[in-house]
């Protein structure tokens, strides 16, 4: 899990199309967030409701968060899991769970 969090976050921060959303977020807080993100994406127990997801990303939506950014993040997630040797059908499941949050994350 720890390796996955680091690898995923490194991809996100290295991608100039989305990295600026994370500029003023403290790394340690962000890391806890990435962990929550992955736990959630794997369908594990988490404490976030759709409303929480809306609130967490509302500030980003104001700053222009859109479908392309969302796709990029889901893409990095899939690529990270593939690198770690996760089976393709499980990756697809994870992507579907992430997809189910799209409307909330993008505030629609």
């Amino acid at each position: 899990m720890e390796a996955a969090v680091d690898a995923f976050y490194r991809k996100v921060l290295s991608d100039d199309t989305v990295a600026h959303f994370f500029d003023d977020v403290d790394m340690d807080r962000q890391r806890a967030k990435q962990k929550a993100f992955l736990t959630m994406a794997f369908g594990g127990p988490h404490n976030y409701s759709g409303k929480d997801m809306r609130t967490a990303h509302a500030r980003l939506v104001v700053n222009g968060l859109n479908d392309a950014h969302f796709d990029a993040i889901v893409g990095h997630l899939g690529a990270t899991l593939a690198e770690l040797g996760v089976a393709p059908d499980l990756i697809q499941q994870v992507a579907a769970i992430a997809e189910s949050t799209r409307a909330d994350v993008l505030g629609r």
Binding site: E2, V5, D6, Y9, R10, L13, S14, M27, D28, R31
Partner: peptide, 9 residues
Amino acid sequence: IFLAGAAMR
């Protein structure tokens, strides 16, 4: 430092 390869922990 993280992007240069060090693990977060």
